[in-house]
Amino acid sequence: MWACTCSQGGFYSTYAIVDRVLQIDEMYIGLKDNGDAPPDLWDSAPVRHANAFWYYRSLKHRVNYSGKVVICRNFLGPAVRSGAYHPPHCFEVVLEQVFSDGVLVNLTSYNDLAADVRELMKQ
């Protein structure tokens, strides 16, 4: 069971980095349950999913994104909210990925810095 924040009229996607290239892997689309399937996307037909969702599998479509993405994993706490999200120092793994036209050009670990911030906050 998973929770989705895309509601009935939105979408969310999963991504992968393959040979340093950013790709959209899957896309889930929330549509009102009117029975109409969304169109094919990059030669991939949508598959019906539970709760009025459709999804596209194995898209493997390159995303020409330029900018940064911060990935945080393994929540450690404290459970302090900043807006709708926990700040990066609340996680064990904090990685910054920098892309240029869809190619990963830099990967920086901030794990030690996050640990230092957690230690300072204990004092």
Rank of each mutant, 00 (worst) to 15 (best):
residue 1 M to W: 11
residue 1 M to R: 08
residue 1 M to I: 13
residue 3 A to H: 14
residue 6 C to W: 01
residue 8 Q to S: 15
residue 9 G to I: 09
residue 10 G to V: 10
residue 11 F to K: 01
residue 11 F to C: 15
residue 12 Y to T: 13
residue 12 Y to G: 13
residue 13 S to E: 09
residue 14 T to R: 05
residue 14 T to L: 13
residue 16 A to H: 08
residue 16 A to D: 13
residue 17 I to Q: 04
residue 17 I to G: 06
residue 18 V to G: 05
residue 19 D to M: 00
residue 19 D to G: 12
residue 22 L to F: 05
residue 22 L to V: 09
residue 23 Q to Y: 05
residue 25 D to P: 08
residue 25 D to F: 07
residue 30 G to N: 08
residue 31 L to V: 13
residue 38 P to F: 01
residue 39 P to A: 15
residue 42 W to D: 03
residue 43 D to R: 04
residue 44 S to K: 14
residue 45 A to H: 09
residue 47 V to P: 05
residue 48 R to S: 14
residue 53 F to I: 04
residue 56 Y to A: 05
residue 56 Y to D: 05
residue 60 K to Q: 12
residue 61 H to S: 07
residue 63 V to W: 00
residue 66 S to T: 14
residue 66 S to Y: 01
residue 72 C to L: 01
residue 73 R to W: 05
residue 73 R to V: 03
residue 73 R to P: 03
residue 80 V to Q: 12
residue 81 R to Y: 13
residue 94 V to E: 00
residue 96 E to Y: 04
residue 96 E to L: 04
residue 98 V to R: 02
residue 100 S to A: 12
residue 100 S to E: 13
residue 102 G to M: 02
residue 103 V to C: 02
residue 104 L to C: 05
residue 108 T to F: 02
residue 110 Y to S: 06
residue 113 L to R: 02
residue 114 A to F: 03
residue 117 V to C: 07
residue 119 E to Q: 10
residue 122 K to Q: 10
